[in-house]
Design a protein around this nucleic acid. Sequence first.
DNA 1: GTCTATACGCGGATAGAC
DNA 2: GTCTATCCGCGTATAGAC
Lengths: 197, 197
Amino acid sequence: MSTQSAAALSGSGAAAIPLSEAKARVVDAAAALFAEHGVGGTSLQMIADVIGVTKAAVYHQFKTKDEIVIAVAESEMARLEVAIKAAESEPDPVKARDVLLTRIVDLAIERRRMESTLTGDPVLVRFYARHEGFRRTMARLYRILMGEGAGPEARVPAAMLIAAIGGAVMHPLVADLDDSALRTHLLHLARRFLDLP
Amino acid sequence: MSTQSAAALSGSGAAAIPLSEAKARVVDAAAALFAEHGVGGTSLQMIADVIGVTKAAVYHQFKTKDEIVIAVAESEMARLEVAIKAAESEPDPVKARDVLLTRIVDLAIERRRMESTLTGDPVLVRFYARHEGFRRTMARLYRILMGEGAGPEARVPAAMLIAAIGGAVMHPLVADLDDSALRTHLLHLARRFLDLP
DNA sequence: GTCTATACGCGGATAGAC
DNA sequence: GTCTATCCGCGTATAGAC
Protein backbone atom coordinates (compact mmCIF):
# COMPACT_ATOMS: atom_id res chain seq x y z
CA MET A 1 0.00 0.00 0.00
CA SER A 2 2.88 2.32 0.61
CA THR A 3 4.36 1.72 -2.80
CA GLN A 4 3.00 3.86 -5.57
CA SER A 5 1.09 1.33 -7.59
CA ALA A 6 1.61 1.53 -11.30
CA ALA A 7 -2.03 2.05 -12.26
CA ALA A 8 -0.83 2.08 -15.84
CA LEU A 9 -3.28 1.51 -18.63
CA SER A 10 -5.63 -0.78 -16.78
CA GLY A 11 -7.57 -2.24 -19.67
CA SER A 12 -10.61 -3.19 -17.70
CA GLY A 13 -12.23 0.16 -18.15
CA ALA A 14 -11.97 2.70 -15.40
CA ALA A 15 -8.60 4.38 -15.36
CA ALA A 16 -8.09 5.41 -11.77
CA ILE A 17 -6.58 8.77 -12.78
CA PRO A 18 -3.35 8.38 -10.77
CA LEU A 19 -1.07 9.76 -13.47
CA SER A 20 2.20 11.34 -12.46
CA GLU A 21 2.54 15.08 -12.85
CA ALA A 22 4.73 14.66 -15.90
CA LYS A 23 2.40 12.15 -17.51
CA ALA A 24 -0.58 14.39 -16.84
CA ARG A 25 1.13 17.30 -18.58
CA VAL A 26 1.70 15.15 -21.64
CA VAL A 27 -1.90 13.95 -21.68
CA ASP A 28 -3.30 17.46 -21.35
CA ALA A 29 -1.11 18.85 -24.09
CA ALA A 30 -1.87 15.90 -26.34
CA ALA A 31 -5.62 16.23 -25.88
CA ALA A 32 -5.53 19.88 -26.85
CA LEU A 33 -3.38 19.18 -29.89
CA PHE A 34 -5.51 16.24 -30.96
CA ALA A 35 -8.50 18.55 -30.93
CA GLU A 36 -6.78 21.11 -33.09
CA HIS A 37 -4.92 18.91 -35.56
CA GLY A 38 -6.40 15.46 -35.16
CA VAL A 39 -4.50 12.50 -33.76
CA GLY A 40 -2.80 11.80 -37.07
CA GLY A 41 -1.79 15.42 -37.45
CA THR A 42 -0.21 15.66 -34.03
CA SER A 43 3.47 14.80 -33.64
CA LEU A 44 5.45 14.05 -30.51
CA GLN A 45 7.50 17.10 -31.32
CA MET A 46 4.41 19.30 -31.08
CA ILE A 47 3.51 17.80 -27.73
CA ALA A 48 7.05 18.28 -26.47
CA ASP A 49 7.08 21.88 -27.66
CA VAL A 50 3.83 22.72 -25.91
CA ILE A 51 5.05 21.48 -22.54
CA GLY A 52 8.53 22.86 -23.15
CA VAL A 53 10.61 19.70 -23.16
CA THR A 54 12.27 17.49 -25.75
CA LYS A 55 10.81 14.51 -27.55
CA ALA A 56 12.98 12.18 -25.51
CA ALA A 57 11.45 13.48 -22.31
CA VAL A 58 8.01 12.66 -23.65
CA TYR A 59 9.21 9.20 -24.59
CA HIS A 60 10.37 8.68 -21.05
CA GLN A 61 6.74 9.01 -19.94
CA PHE A 62 5.15 7.02 -22.75
CA LYS A 63 7.04 4.47 -24.77
CA THR A 64 5.00 4.98 -27.90
CA LYS A 65 2.60 7.48 -29.40
CA ASP A 66 -0.13 4.86 -29.13
CA GLU A 67 0.24 4.87 -25.37
CA ILE A 68 -0.37 8.59 -25.36
CA VAL A 69 -3.47 8.15 -27.46
CA ILE A 70 -4.67 5.48 -25.06
CA ALA A 71 -3.99 7.65 -22.04
CA VAL A 72 -5.93 10.53 -23.56
CA ALA A 73 -8.82 8.26 -24.40
CA GLU A 74 -8.85 6.73 -20.93
CA SER A 75 -8.68 10.10 -19.29
CA GLU A 76 -11.79 11.17 -21.18
CA MET A 77 -13.49 7.89 -20.48
CA ALA A 78 -12.81 8.23 -16.76
CA ARG A 79 -14.79 11.45 -16.70
CA LEU A 80 -17.66 9.71 -18.41
CA GLU A 81 -17.57 6.89 -15.88
CA VAL A 82 -18.07 9.36 -13.07
CA ALA A 83 -21.17 10.66 -14.81
CA ILE A 84 -22.50 7.16 -15.34
CA LYS A 85 -21.92 6.15 -11.73
CA ALA A 86 -23.80 9.21 -10.55
CA ALA A 87 -26.73 8.26 -12.74
CA GLU A 88 -26.65 4.61 -11.72
CA SER A 89 -26.88 5.52 -8.07
CA GLU A 90 -30.28 7.03 -8.79
CA PRO A 91 -33.05 4.46 -8.20
CA ASP A 92 -35.70 6.07 -10.36
CA PRO A 93 -34.89 5.30 -14.02
CA VAL A 94 -36.41 8.53 -15.27
CA LYS A 95 -34.38 10.57 -12.82
CA ALA A 96 -31.27 8.54 -13.60
CA ARG A 97 -31.65 9.40 -17.25
CA ASP A 98 -31.97 13.06 -16.43
CA VAL A 99 -28.91 12.99 -14.22
CA LEU A 100 -26.91 11.33 -16.96
CA LEU A 101 -28.15 13.81 -19.52
CA THR A 102 -27.16 16.73 -17.35
CA ARG A 103 -23.72 15.31 -16.70
CA ILE A 104 -23.12 14.58 -20.35
CA VAL A 105 -24.06 18.09 -21.32
CA ASP A 106 -21.76 19.44 -18.63
CA LEU A 107 -18.90 17.31 -19.90
CA ALA A 108 -19.47 18.43 -23.47
CA ILE A 109 -19.52 22.07 -22.43
CA GLU A 110 -16.39 21.64 -20.38
CA ARG A 111 -14.65 19.97 -23.29
CA ARG A 112 -16.22 22.37 -25.72
CA ARG A 113 -13.11 22.96 -27.82
CA MET A 114 -12.20 19.32 -28.18
CA GLU A 115 -15.35 17.30 -27.75
CA SER A 116 -15.99 16.38 -31.34
CA THR A 117 -12.41 15.38 -32.01
CA LEU A 118 -12.33 13.27 -28.90
CA THR A 119 -15.45 11.46 -29.99
CA GLY A 120 -15.02 11.63 -33.74
CA ASP A 121 -11.36 11.22 -34.62
CA PRO A 122 -10.93 8.05 -36.66
CA VAL A 123 -7.92 6.94 -34.65
CA LEU A 124 -9.77 7.32 -31.36
CA VAL A 125 -12.93 5.76 -32.74
CA ARG A 126 -11.00 2.71 -33.81
CA PHE A 127 -9.43 2.54 -30.44
CA TYR A 128 -12.73 2.74 -28.61
CA ALA A 129 -14.19 0.04 -30.80
CA ARG A 130 -11.43 -2.38 -29.93
CA HIS A 131 -11.35 -2.03 -26.17
CA GLU A 132 -13.62 -4.07 -23.95
CA GLY A 133 -13.70 -1.56 -21.13
CA PHE A 134 -14.81 1.25 -23.37
CA ARG A 135 -17.51 -0.81 -24.97
CA ARG A 136 -18.81 -1.84 -21.57
CA THR A 137 -18.85 1.71 -20.32
CA MET A 138 -20.77 2.86 -23.35
CA ALA A 139 -23.17 -0.04 -22.97
CA ARG A 140 -23.99 1.15 -19.45
CA LEU A 141 -24.51 4.66 -20.73
CA TYR A 142 -26.86 3.50 -23.47
CA ARG A 143 -28.79 1.36 -21.02
CA ILE A 144 -29.56 4.35 -18.84
CA LEU A 145 -30.35 6.52 -21.80
CA MET A 146 -32.63 4.10 -23.59
CA GLY A 147 -34.25 2.32 -20.68
CA GLU A 148 -36.17 -0.81 -21.64
CA GLY A 149 -36.16 -0.45 -25.39
CA ALA A 150 -33.42 -2.05 -27.44
CA GLY A 151 -34.89 -1.72 -30.94
CA PRO A 152 -34.24 0.93 -33.56
CA GLU A 153 -36.94 3.12 -31.99
CA ALA A 154 -34.74 3.44 -28.94
CA ARG A 155 -31.29 3.24 -30.50
CA VAL A 156 -31.64 5.79 -33.26
CA PRO A 157 -32.76 8.63 -30.97
CA ALA A 158 -30.04 7.71 -28.47
CA ALA A 159 -27.41 7.87 -31.20
CA MET A 160 -28.80 11.18 -32.43
CA LEU A 161 -28.85 12.68 -28.98
CA ILE A 162 -25.27 11.73 -28.18
CA ALA A 163 -24.14 13.05 -31.54
CA ALA A 164 -26.20 16.21 -31.16
CA ILE A 165 -24.74 17.13 -27.80
CA GLY A 166 -21.17 16.33 -28.74
CA GLY A 167 -21.37 17.98 -32.11
CA ALA A 168 -23.38 21.06 -31.24
CA VAL A 169 -20.91 22.46 -28.71
CA MET A 170 -18.30 22.93 -31.42
CA HIS A 171 -20.66 24.11 -34.10
CA PRO A 172 -19.94 27.52 -35.67
CA LEU A 173 -23.62 28.43 -35.29
CA VAL A 174 -23.26 28.59 -31.53
CA ALA A 175 -19.67 29.76 -31.29
CA ASP A 176 -20.69 33.13 -29.91
CA LEU A 177 -22.72 31.70 -27.04
CA ASP A 178 -21.02 31.53 -23.69
CA ASP A 179 -20.81 28.24 -21.87
CA SER A 180 -23.68 28.83 -19.50
CA ALA A 181 -26.12 29.99 -22.15
CA LEU A 182 -25.23 27.10 -24.42
CA ARG A 183 -25.57 24.67 -21.55
CA THR A 184 -29.07 25.87 -20.74
CA HIS A 185 -30.32 25.64 -24.30
CA LEU A 186 -28.66 22.31 -24.91
CA LEU A 187 -30.09 20.73 -21.81
CA HIS A 188 -33.54 22.05 -22.52
CA LEU A 189 -33.60 20.73 -26.06
CA ALA A 190 -32.06 17.41 -25.10
CA ARG A 191 -34.77 16.83 -22.50
CA ARG A 192 -37.42 17.71 -25.02
CA PHE A 193 -35.96 15.33 -27.52
CA LEU A 194 -35.93 12.44 -25.07
CA ASP A 195 -39.49 13.02 -24.00
CA LEU A 196 -40.72 12.52 -27.52
CA PRO A 197 -43.20 9.68 -27.83
CA MET B 1 -17.51 26.88 -75.39
CA SER B 2 -15.72 24.12 -77.16
CA THR B 3 -12.63 24.38 -75.01
CA GLN B 4 -12.74 22.43 -71.78
CA SER B 5 -12.79 25.22 -69.25
CA ALA B 6 -10.49 24.75 -66.33
CA ALA B 7 -13.17 24.88 -63.62
CA ALA B 8 -10.30 24.39 -61.19
CA LEU B 9 -10.83 25.24 -57.57
CA SER B 10 -13.33 27.99 -58.13
CA GLY B 11 -13.32 29.70 -54.77
CA SER B 12 -16.70 31.28 -55.12
CA GLY B 13 -18.47 28.27 -53.76
CA ALA B 14 -20.05 25.88 -56.17
CA ALA B 15 -17.52 23.57 -57.73
CA ALA B 16 -18.99 22.63 -61.07
CA ILE B 17 -17.91 18.97 -60.74
CA PRO B 18 -16.05 18.83 -64.07
CA LEU B 19 -13.12 16.83 -62.77
CA SER B 20 -11.19 14.64 -65.16
CA GLU B 21 -11.55 10.90 -64.79
CA ALA B 22 -8.13 10.63 -63.23
CA LYS B 23 -8.76 13.47 -60.81
CA ALA B 24 -12.10 11.99 -59.82
CA ARG B 25 -10.46 8.69 -58.99
CA VAL B 26 -8.02 10.45 -56.72
CA VAL B 27 -10.77 12.41 -54.98
CA ASP B 28 -12.89 9.32 -54.42
CA ALA B 29 -10.02 7.31 -53.02
CA ALA B 30 -8.91 10.20 -50.86
CA ALA B 31 -12.38 10.73 -49.40
CA ALA B 32 -12.63 7.08 -48.40
CA LEU B 33 -9.19 7.10 -46.83
CA PHE B 34 -9.81 10.37 -45.02
CA ALA B 35 -12.86 8.79 -43.47
CA GLU B 36 -10.92 5.77 -42.29
CA HIS B 37 -7.68 7.36 -41.14
CA GLY B 38 -8.38 11.06 -40.96
CA VAL B 39 -6.80 13.62 -43.27
CA GLY B 40 -3.60 13.73 -41.25
CA GLY B 41 -3.34 9.95 -41.21
CA THR B 42 -3.73 9.58 -44.95
CA SER B 43 -0.63 9.64 -47.15
CA LEU B 44 -0.33 10.09 -50.88
CA GLN B 45 1.13 6.61 -50.99
CA MET B 46 -2.12 5.19 -49.59
CA ILE B 47 -4.15 7.08 -52.16
CA ALA B 48 -1.89 5.90 -54.95
CA ASP B 49 -2.09 2.30 -53.74
CA VAL B 50 -5.88 2.33 -53.65
CA ILE B 51 -6.20 3.47 -57.25
CA GLY B 52 -3.29 1.33 -58.33
CA VAL B 53 -0.81 3.94 -59.51
CA THR B 54 2.34 5.53 -58.18
CA LYS B 55 2.68 8.61 -56.03
CA ALA B 56 4.05 10.55 -58.96
CA ALA B 57 0.91 9.87 -60.94
CA VAL B 58 -1.16 11.34 -58.17
CA TYR B 59 1.10 14.37 -58.08
CA HIS B 60 0.49 14.86 -61.74
CA GLN B 61 -3.19 15.43 -60.95
CA PHE B 62 -2.75 17.54 -57.85
CA LYS B 63 0.39 19.48 -57.12
CA THR B 64 0.08 19.20 -53.36
CA LYS B 65 -1.79 17.22 -50.76
CA ASP B 66 -3.64 20.39 -49.81
CA GLU B 67 -5.15 20.54 -53.28
CA ILE B 68 -6.50 17.06 -52.80
CA VAL B 69 -8.02 18.03 -49.48
CA ILE B 70 -9.62 21.05 -51.14
CA ALA B 71 -10.96 18.96 -53.99
CA VAL B 72 -12.51 16.49 -51.57
CA ALA B 73 -14.07 19.28 -49.54
CA GLU B 74 -15.45 20.96 -52.64
CA SER B 75 -16.83 17.74 -53.98
CA GLU B 76 -18.76 17.24 -50.76
CA MET B 77 -19.87 20.82 -50.72
CA ALA B 78 -21.15 20.56 -54.27
CA ARG B 79 -23.53 17.81 -53.21
CA LEU B 80 -24.80 19.99 -50.45
CA GLU B 81 -25.38 22.87 -52.86
CA VAL B 82 -27.66 20.71 -54.94
CA ALA B 83 -29.73 19.98 -51.86
CA ILE B 84 -29.89 23.63 -50.94
CA LYS B 85 -30.94 24.69 -54.44
CA ALA B 86 -33.72 22.15 -54.41
CA ALA B 87 -34.97 23.56 -51.13
CA GLU B 88 -34.66 27.16 -52.25
CA SER B 89 -36.78 26.52 -55.30
CA GLU B 90 -39.64 25.70 -52.96
CA PRO B 91 -41.78 28.80 -52.28
CA ASP B 92 -43.32 27.64 -49.03
CA PRO B 93 -40.71 28.02 -46.26
CA VAL B 94 -42.06 25.12 -44.28
CA LYS B 95 -41.93 22.85 -47.29
CA ALA B 96 -38.49 24.16 -48.19
CA ARG B 97 -37.26 23.20 -44.76
CA ASP B 98 -38.66 19.73 -45.15
CA VAL B 99 -37.10 19.30 -48.57
CA LEU B 100 -33.74 20.38 -47.20
CA LEU B 101 -34.05 18.05 -44.23
CA THR B 102 -34.84 15.11 -46.46
CA ARG B 103 -31.94 15.85 -48.75
CA ILE B 104 -29.51 16.24 -45.87
CA VAL B 105 -30.58 12.95 -44.39
CA ASP B 106 -30.18 11.30 -47.78
CA LEU B 107 -26.69 12.72 -48.15
CA ALA B 108 -25.72 11.55 -44.69
CA ILE B 109 -27.00 8.05 -45.39
CA GLU B 110 -25.24 7.95 -48.71
CA ARG B 111 -22.01 9.05 -47.07
CA ARG B 112 -22.69 6.90 -44.07
CA ARG B 113 -19.16 5.56 -43.69
CA MET B 114 -17.47 8.91 -44.01
CA GLU B 115 -19.94 11.57 -43.01
CA SER B 116 -18.60 12.45 -39.61
CA THR B 117 -15.00 12.59 -40.75
CA LEU B 118 -15.91 14.75 -43.67
CA THR B 119 -17.69 17.17 -41.39
CA GLY B 120 -15.58 16.74 -38.29
CA ASP B 121 -11.95 16.30 -39.30
CA PRO B 122 -9.93 19.21 -37.90
CA VAL B 123 -8.12 19.77 -41.16
CA LEU B 124 -11.35 19.98 -43.12
CA VAL B 125 -13.07 22.07 -40.47
CA ARG B 126 -10.25 24.60 -40.63
CA PHE B 127 -10.54 24.64 -44.35
CA TYR B 128 -14.28 25.21 -44.34
CA ALA B 129 -13.90 28.02 -41.84
CA ARG B 130 -11.48 29.88 -44.06
CA HIS B 131 -13.32 29.74 -47.35
CA GLU B 132 -15.89 32.33 -48.28
CA GLY B 133 -17.86 30.07 -50.56
CA PHE B 134 -18.29 27.41 -47.94
CA ARG B 135 -19.39 29.89 -45.33
CA ARG B 136 -21.93 31.34 -47.72
CA THR B 137 -23.28 27.95 -48.62
CA MET B 138 -23.69 27.06 -44.98
CA ALA B 139 -25.33 30.41 -44.32
CA ARG B 140 -27.95 29.60 -46.94
CA LEU B 141 -28.50 26.21 -45.40
CA TYR B 142 -28.96 27.66 -41.93
CA ARG B 143 -31.34 30.27 -43.26
CA ILE B 144 -33.67 27.63 -44.64
CA LEU B 145 -33.35 25.50 -41.56
CA MET B 146 -33.95 28.25 -39.03
CA GLY B 147 -36.39 30.46 -40.88
CA GLU B 148 -36.94 33.85 -39.29
CA GLY B 149 -35.20 33.33 -36.00
CA ALA B 150 -31.54 34.20 -35.59
CA GLY B 151 -31.20 34.01 -31.81
CA PRO B 152 -29.92 31.13 -29.69
CA GLU B 153 -33.42 29.64 -29.64
CA ALA B 154 -33.07 29.04 -33.37
CA ARG B 155 -29.35 28.44 -33.68
CA VAL B 156 -28.84 25.88 -30.94
CA PRO B 157 -31.46 23.46 -32.28
CA ALA B 158 -30.14 23.92 -35.81
CA ALA B 159 -26.62 23.08 -34.66
CA MET B 160 -27.91 20.07 -32.75
CA LEU B 161 -29.90 18.80 -35.67
CA ILE B 162 -27.02 19.04 -38.13
CA ALA B 163 -24.73 17.34 -35.65
CA ALA B 164 -27.32 14.69 -34.84
CA ILE B 165 -27.87 13.68 -38.44
CA GLY B 166 -24.20 13.69 -39.38
CA GLY B 167 -23.10 11.93 -36.22
CA ALA B 168 -25.86 9.38 -35.87
CA VAL B 169 -25.24 7.66 -39.19
CA MET B 170 -21.81 6.51 -38.04
CA HIS B 171 -22.79 5.68 -34.51
CA PRO B 172 -22.13 2.13 -33.29
CA LEU B 173 -25.63 2.01 -31.83
CA VAL B 174 -27.16 1.98 -35.28
CA ALA B 175 -24.44 0.11 -37.14
CA ASP B 176 -26.67 -2.90 -37.67
CA LEU B 177 -29.49 -0.94 -39.30
CA ASP B 178 -29.61 -0.95 -43.05
CA ASP B 179 -29.62 2.33 -44.92
CA SER B 180 -33.32 2.46 -45.62
CA ALA B 181 -34.37 1.70 -42.05
CA LEU B 182 -31.94 4.20 -40.64
CA ARG B 183 -33.11 6.80 -43.11
CA THR B 184 -36.72 6.38 -42.10
CA HIS B 185 -36.05 6.69 -38.38
CA LEU B 186 -33.66 9.57 -38.81
CA LEU B 187 -36.03 11.57 -40.94
CA HIS B 188 -38.92 10.94 -38.62
CA LEU B 189 -37.01 12.06 -35.55
CA ALA B 190 -35.48 15.05 -37.30
CA ARG B 191 -38.92 16.30 -38.34
CA ARG B 192 -40.20 15.86 -34.85
CA PHE B 193 -37.28 17.77 -33.45
CA LEU B 194 -37.80 20.72 -35.77
CA ASP B 195 -41.51 20.93 -35.12
CA LEU B 196 -40.93 21.54 -31.46
CA PRO B 197 -42.34 24.84 -30.27
C1' DG C 1 -1.03 10.06 -67.90
C1' DT C 2 1.92 7.14 -65.87
C1' DC C 3 6.36 5.48 -64.64
C1' DT C 4 11.38 5.21 -62.15
C1' DA C 5 14.44 7.54 -59.44
C1' DT C 6 15.72 10.62 -56.13
C1' DA C 7 16.08 14.67 -52.79
C1' DC C 8 15.06 16.08 -48.31
C1' DG C 9 12.87 16.73 -44.03
C1' DC C 10 10.08 15.15 -40.34
C1' DG C 11 8.12 11.61 -37.55
C1' DG C 12 8.66 7.79 -34.35
C1' DA C 13 11.83 5.62 -31.63
C1' DT C 14 16.34 4.39 -28.94
C1' DA C 15 20.99 4.97 -26.38
C1' DG C 16 23.33 6.88 -22.95
C1' DA C 17 24.99 11.17 -20.23
C1' DC C 18 23.57 14.36 -16.52
C1' DG D 1 13.09 13.41 -15.41
C1' DT D 2 15.32 15.64 -18.77
C1' DC D 3 18.89 16.26 -22.07
C1' DT D 4 21.93 15.48 -26.63
C1' DA D 5 22.69 12.66 -30.31
C1' DT D 6 21.41 9.50 -33.59
C1' DC D 7 18.92 5.85 -36.45
C1' DC D 8 15.68 4.71 -39.81
C1' DG D 9 11.61 4.85 -42.43
C1' DC D 10 8.02 7.30 -44.53
C1' DG D 11 5.97 11.46 -46.23
C1' DT D 12 5.88 15.29 -49.47
C1' DA D 13 7.63 16.82 -53.49
C1' DT D 14 10.39 17.11 -58.00
C1' DA D 15 12.95 15.69 -62.40
C1' DG D 16 12.83 13.46 -66.38
C1' DA D 17 11.91 9.12 -69.37
C1' DC D 18 8.20 6.50 -71.80
